[in-house]
Amino acid sequence: MADILTITLNPTVDLSTHAPEVVAGPKVRCDAPVADPGGGGINVSRAIKFLGGKSTAFVATGGETGARLLRLLASEHVKFTAFSVTGDTRQSMSITDKSSGAQFRFVMPGPVWDDHMVNDALHAIGAAAPHNAIVVLSGSQPPGVPVDFPARLNRALAPKKCRLFVDTSGAPLRALTQSCVGPFVLRMDDVEAENLADRPLLSRVNTAEFAADLVARGVAQNVIIARGSDGSTLVNRDGRWHCARAIDPAQVVSAVGAGDSFVGAFCMAMSRGDTQIDALVFGTAAASAAVMTEGTKLCHAADVSALLSDCELVEV
């Protein structure tokens, strides 16, 4: 069983609430908010915990919001290693309009990092990562963190022979796809993939061809592209597969948390020795389960187990 270390450089306290109607002008009176620890890597660790697995969350935190975040993690019994940064950890908010069902999400930028914080974080992650671990870098980067941070992290982890799973977006993702860094897994969604490809990826075949080009160029050993409600495509040098979601679109309550649930389940499966294909199916079931929950909630183990047999795996 391989250890799992998740990394969240830009965590957040996620507040979620409901309002009768969200309109500009008058005060929008909301229900009592629910607070959850948030950020890509944190949610991956939470999903692993909900599925009965174990991981350690490396979390960069600062200020009173950061202290609150760590208390929330402790209350969920998620094991963590805290890395102190200058500035306050951010907060985010999602408000669901009861009249329409629409969800409004407000995301803050987070504290600004300098070069010393970046270098200190790389050293701290290298020290925290066990040998032969699966390391997950997930979520946005704080302002000031260089776009080549995933490449730097991959080099820093090389002496410990860790398998790096990168799930990022924007400029860091583009920089990664223009290099031959070669992390174990690179994941993105369909919108990000189309932006990188500079063309629509209308079919599973189109998606698989784009992912295969990234693998051939040495960008990553495995490339996973989420196709929204259609599921996820996995490509490596051995083949191309697609796993379709196990639920009807009408069952979708909130898309928040689907990606993190997928990553958590995928890495949990890999840590216990499953193949990448089996991990793809497990991840798809977890993503399907996550969209059935409200707000910032993630997957439930019982739902994942119930949906697992309904996930359709095909070669592309």
Rank of each mutant, 00 (worst) to 15 (best):
G239K: 02
W241R: 01
M188Y: 05
L214I: 02
P172H: 13
V215D: 13
N236D: 10
Q178L: 13
D230M: 12
G257P: 06
A193F: 10
P249Q: 05
G218D: 11
A216N: 10
A250L: 08
E209I: 11
D189P: 00
I224K: 00
T168C: 12
L196S: 03
L202M: 06
R217N: 12
S179C: 05
V219R: 02
V223G: 01
S203E: 12
L202V: 07
V252C: 06
D213N: 06
G259A: 11
A258K: 02
T207K: 01
G218H: 04
D248F: 00
R237I: 12
A171C: 05
C243L: 03
S169E: 15
A212P: 09
A193P: 11
L201Y: 12
I225R: 01
V253N: 04
A244N: 01
P183I: 10
V205G: 11
A226V: 01
S254P: 00
V253G: 01
L196K: 00
V253Y: 00
R174W: 14
N236W: 06
S203N: 05
P172L: 13
F262Q: 04
D248Q: 05
D198Q: 06
D198V: 05
D230S: 11
R237D: 15
L234A: 07
R240D: 06
A255E: 11
A193S: 03
L176P: 05
R240H: 08
G182P: 00
S229T: 03
A244Q: 04
L202F: 06
R227H: 04
R217Y: 10
V256P: 07
M188S: 04
F210K: 05
D248R: 00
G182H: 10
F262D: 06
D248H: 04
Q221E: 14
V253K: 07
A171H: 08
G239V: 13
C180K: 09
I224M: 14
D260I: 09
F184V: 04
P249C: 06
T177P: 12
E209T: 12
L196H: 04
L173P: 04
G239T: 10
L186A: 05
R237S: 15
V219S: 08
R245T: 15
L173Q: 08
E209Q: 14
Q221F: 15
L202E: 13
G257L: 08
A212W: 07
S203V: 00
R227Q: 13
E209G: 02
D248A: 01
D260K: 00
A246V: 03
L173H: 08
R217E: 14
Q178H: 09
S232N: 15
L202G: 13
L214R: 02
V215E: 13
G259S: 09
V185I: 07
W241N: 03
D260S: 01
A197V: 01
I225C: 10
V252H: 04
V223L: 07
R240Q: 13
S169C: 07
V252N: 03
A193R: 00
V223H: 04
S232A: 15
D230L: 14
A193Y: 09
L176R: 01
L176N: 06
R237K: 12
F210S: 11
L173C: 09
R204E: 14
V181F: 14
S232K: 07
